[in-house]
């Protein structure tokens, strides 16, 4: 039935592109605003910050967006090929994304980048699994308290 949190596969690529791009633009605005403000001489701090935001924030957004979108494309493709969902999908997708985006730097660069991205995604997935198992420990079913052979709650 309808999933309310995440859309199905082909269309979620657009969502991921847009979400990653927005995140990058907003984060880049803050980052380069502060950087431009600090690196400008006093008196030109405001214009320096605006110039830095104008020239740099869209680039950060574009980098984030292309990473997230390419990752989502690979994720959907791997899901379609493997026909199952497990933590190896994002790891493989991260590997492919890192390789694809570093392709113009030559084979060595692409390989190193792919391995780095795969390891990064493996760490993310591991942390996610650990967090969810830690969170679900609180709601583990417990044996009812028995006193005289009769459960107290009954």
């Amino acid at each position: 039935m309808a999933d309310h949190t995440r859309d199905p596969c082909p269309i979620v690529i657009i969502n991921d592109f847009g979400g990653a791009f927005s995140m990058g633009v907003i984060g880049g605005t803050i980052w380069h605003g502060i950087k431009g403000f600090r690196n400008s001489p006093s008196g030109e701090r405001r214009s320096g910050a605006i110039a830095a935001i104008r020239s740099r924030a869209p680039v950060v957004g574009g980098n984030f967006g292309s990473w997230g979108g390419v990752f989502s494309i690979f994720d959907c493709a791997i899901k379609g090929i493997r026909r199952k969902e497990d933590p190896f999908n994002p790891i493989l997708a991260g590997f492919c994304t890192g390789g694809a985006l570093a392709m113009r730097g030559g084979f060595k660069h692409a390989r190193n980048s792919a391995i780095t991205c795969g390891c990064l995604l493996a760490v993310f997935e591991g942390v996610g699994i650990a967090m969810s198992s830690y969170m679900s420990r609180a709601s583990k079913p417990q044996l009812p308290d028995m006193e005289g052979g009769v459960p107290l709650a009954a």
Partner: peptide, 17 residues
Amino acid sequence: SRGWSDDLCYGSGTMYM
């Protein structure tokens, strides 16, 4: 649409792509 965040993600994603 689920609200403004859906609009934001899909709108910017469509325009960017």
